[in-house]
């Protein structure tokens, strides 16, 4: 049922390891295509540079947080992610829609499409959790922020001047409110 991972997975690994030489290859094989697409669709070279960089950072997060397994060529995937990002950006700017009204977003293999869709969903999900976090009360934010600092939770509790039991209980309540906010 699961498809084999594409050999281009090495480019995903390159992003995780900040392997400049391999990332350079990605630019060599994709940058021009992305630049033409965005410049052809009411964007500038600066827009193209921003979108391309954001796409690679998103792929980094998708790999780090979700263990992204590539089942299609990397350049097809990057291009699809960039197209979708640009399409959303244009919608946000509420200017002219992308030429051929985004139909070409459906081009490319099913795998490429599905992977790009997962990435976009994950990003939106991350954004929703963050927006919910911003709505929490100050105390909750503080508890969550501190408890994520990588220290033993006993130490965190001590630094905050509360007991371990209180910290854990309070964090679980704060996280429950957060999850609830996202579901609303």
């Amino acid at each position: 049922m699961t498809k084999p991972t594409h050999p281009d997975q090495r480019y995903v690994t390159a992003l995780l390891n900040n392997d400049a030489a391999l990332i350079g290859e990605v630019y060599k094989s994709c940058a021009r295509q992305v630049k033409s697409y965005i410049c052809f669709n009411n964007g500038t070279e600066d827009d193209a540079a921003d979108i391309f960089q954001e796409a690679l950072i998103d792929i980094y997060h998708q790999a780090k947080d979700k263990g992204l397994q590539l089942t299609c060529p990397f350049n097809a995937f990057v291009f699809m992610v960039c197209k979708r990002k640009w399409f959303n950006e244009l919608k946000k700017r509420a200017a002219s829609p992308v030429t051929n009204s985004g139909d070409d977003l459906l081009e490319g293999s099913e795998d490429t499409f599905a992977l790009a869709e997962q990435l976009e969903e994950h990003n939106q999900q991350t954004g929703r959790f963050w927006a919910a976090f911003e709505q929490l009360g100050e105390r909750c934010k503080e508890i969550i922020r501190w408890s994520m600092q990588g220290e033993a939770q006993e130490k965190v509790a001590e630094a905050m001047g509360v007991t371990y039991g209180y910290l854990r209980k309070k964090k679980s309540e704060c996280m429950a409110s957060l999850v609830k906010l996202v579901q609303l």
């Binding site: 992003l15 995780l16 900040n18 400049a20 990332i23 960089q53 690679l56 950072i57 980094y60 997060h61 780090k64 947080d65 999900q125 991350t126 929703r128 959790f129 963050w130 976090f133 969550i144 922020r145 994520m148 600092q149 990588g150 996280m175 957060l178 999850v179 996202v182």
Partner: peptide, 24 residues
């Protein structure tokens, strides 16, 4: 999911910072 999402904002990620330099 919530935990992973918040970590992206609350925990500095030196790998991501280094990657951004390269991409820049």
């Amino acid at each position: 999911e919530a935990n992973t999402a918040l970590r992206r904002f609350l925990v500095p990620d030196s790998n991501a910072e280094a990657l951004k330099q390269t991409l820049g």
